[in-house]
Design a protein around this nucleic acid. Structure first.
Lengths: 245, 245
DNA sequence: ACGATGAGTTGACCGCCATCAACGAAAACG
DNA sequence: CGTTTTCGTTGATGGCGGTCAACTCATCGT
């Protein structure tokens, strides 16, 4: 179907999907010339090694980052040193939205593996959003989607038990891998048990134990960071009916 | 200092603060004519009785709501019926941001007392934001601020113990009351113990017990819904040093 | 004003998950 | 390639907060 599009647009779509800027570009349905103008947005790229920070807490905000390759975690820290992972981001997702509010980042973004991002200068994005309606609308949706995502994490942390949290986590990861054209049943975790636990409000031992338990039950296969989902339905069932409730 | 402003602007500032649309209007620093144009935004008003829904989950999104008087809770529900409060909103705060993402609301907004909101049609807001830079910037900040707020709730739910959660909750309420010109040391809770517990990931009995415990310790005075903070510093200390940690 | 209903408190008990600990395995480093 | 360090697993124990229950006290509606 792409063959019906004018060549330059087709080309740009490819460029955009190569750049994996899915969240901002692709779903919008922009006119050809608008798409061309969005190229202005995509400034430099930046490569990061594993464990390297894309930005740190309290650093000045000036750009958003679209993940071109690799994956990240965002972490927030309390004064007493306690740290929590607030999200895991993968290819095509946006980083940096937390900084818009105050002009300073409130989380740190750390690469979980060697990664690459496209730098989107925020001032330019705002300017362009004023001119291109579709871009503005899409950007607002991205912001709102993040609000919604966090609400479902709040629900998870507030009402779910360890097994449910892990099940929800695995299914969410699977769905996101699948959406990117990777296998949704077999994947490699980019994060440690401790990071998973931090995100889910559990200790690493509980994460490990629960994964082992899932394996005994035939729900998944675990081998270190490699996960294979064997029974999605029962996993899903775990979430909706925690205890015959 | 307001006396130095041109009369119409001064007047509008007053109107705006009466309307309590603080989040969108006041901090922006708009030109006089821009402020005038923002009047277009403020459409009808809507009054709600206690326990009445401003909007329900899955209802179509078409407007944001600025709370003019009263207070609300937002709740999200799982398929199995479990419900969680995701936030409490008071005068001057915005409701409805969750709907932008999909065009359907993902939470319900329920009045905690008889309340009144200003209806801000979203299509108009988007259009006007394209023309008024300051409005656009401010709106993005509001969205980002909500993302940041939810992240701190995630931190609370993920790493804090019951006492810390309650302390953080009370201090947050106090600060918001103070920001609105009310007493930050003596106030009346608009929500039940169960709603507080739902928000904090605790059971109502734990909320009740912990409040009683705070009272025994001389940190607060509780009498049903009336709260008086007696020792803010020690309350704050509870959060930062949970267990000599 | 009064009764009915919902809200809050307190106690006793229990279960889930944290904690502490020891071991094993993989991956990162020179 | 071997060494070191980080990561993961599993067991034993304990504590925080959930659960169940009984009772009191506001508050809402008629």
């Amino acid at each position: 179907m792409d063959l019906q599009l004018p060549p330059t647009l087709r080309q740009l779509r490819v460029a955009c999907s190569q750049c994996n800027l899915m969240e901002l570009c692709l779903p919008v349905g922009l006119s050809e010339e608008d798409v061309a103008r969005i190229e202005e947005l995509i400034g430099t790229r930046r490569k990061l090694k594993r464990h390297q920070a894309l930005y740190e807490v309290r650093s000045p905000f000036q750009a958003l980052y679209a993940i071109r390759a690799g994956s990240f975690k965002t972490t927030i820290v309390l004064e007493d040193g306690r740290e929590q992972v607030t999200g895991f981001q993968m290819t095509g997702e946006l980083l940096g939205l937390d900084g818009i509010s105050t002009g300073l980042h409130v989380v740190s973004a750390i690469a979980l593996e060697d990664s690459e991002v496209c730098v989107i200068e925020y001032a330019r994005l705002e300017a362009l959003a004023r001119e291109i309606h579709g871009l503005q609308a899409q950007f607002h949706k991205v912001l709102s989607r993040e609000i919604v995502r966090e609400q479902s994490v709040m629900m998870l942390l507030g009402t779910m038990r360890a097994e449910e949290r892990l099940a929800a986590f695995l299914l969410n990861l699977a769905q996101r891998f699948a959406a990117r054209g990777f296998s949704g049943t077999e994947f490699r975790l980019r994060m440690t048990r401790e990071e998973i636990g931090s995100y889910l409000g559990l200790k690493l031992e509980t994460v490990s134990r629960t994964l082992s338990h899932f394996q005994e039950e035939g729900l998944i296969e675990v081998q270190h960071k490699n996960i294979r989902l064997r029974d999605r339905e029962r996993l899903r069932g775990l979430i909706q009916a925690p205890l015959s409730h």
